[in-house]
Design a protein around this nucleic acid. Sequence first.
DNA 1: TACAGTACACACCTTTTTGTAAGTATGGAA
DNA 2: TTCCATACTTACAAAAAGGTGTGTACTGTA
Lengths: 112, 112
Amino acid sequence: MEPIKVTAKCPIRTTLELLGGKWKLLIIFQLKDGTKRLSELKKGIPDISEKMLIQELKKLMDSDLVTRKNYGEVPPKVEYSLTVAGMAVLPLIEQLKRFGEVYIASRQIPSL
Amino acid sequence: MEPIKVTAKCPIRTTLELLGGKWKLLIIFQLKDGTKRLSELKKGIPDISEKMLIQELKKLMDSDLVTRKNYGEVPPKVEYSLTVAGMAVLPLIEQLKRFGEVYIASRQIPSL
DNA sequence: TACAGTACACACCTTTTTGTAAGTATGGAA
DNA sequence: TTCCATACTTACAAAAAGGTGTGTACTGTA
């Protein structure tokens, strides 16, 4: 169990560190409806590489935003889901999403 | 006037492209109370380099989130401020900030 | 004359992030 | 025996992001 390190001093930066990068928010978004296996996550994010997916899942677990359950079976079965802290990210993603939608829409009427 | 390019297909990714990186949100946050000069922005974000600041301001201008006003004086005077679209980012930042605060607070009571 | 102040540009370098391709372990099915 | 599925790991390479240092333009001021 690693000590969680949060180097930044201001809360905006903290969040940026926790959630920054190309994939973390997309992974959390995939888990919004509950538990998923690695292979399911891959399907949900078609252009992520397996390495990236696992790597980012690990970071999210280190930050205590995602949990992992290993069934210890063969072939392996592992399930990922959001922690309470992870669920707290969902409304944030919703806002990001809405912002993107509005932004895109406004671009399509450049006459404004 | 460059055509604004938004390569991503989903609104979350669009937003991530617009606002991702280490500095953009911090710059927008600095502009929340109105117009600022470059030197003032630097003061507000002590550890950003001049190059990064200008570079990121340019990207924000390309995305139409920030505007620039050049007074054409010598020594140069230039002012930056948020566009309407840029102001729409502020509530988003507020949420990020609150998330960070809650996250940090929860870490300080690890007994939970 | 030398220097200060302001908003940049440019060259170069380091670090971080992301991607690619291969390999590992295991038991059951063919 | 060979192959499959699954969740990884590892080594390596490419690309993106970020940082440092220097230079430019111009005018006023000491």
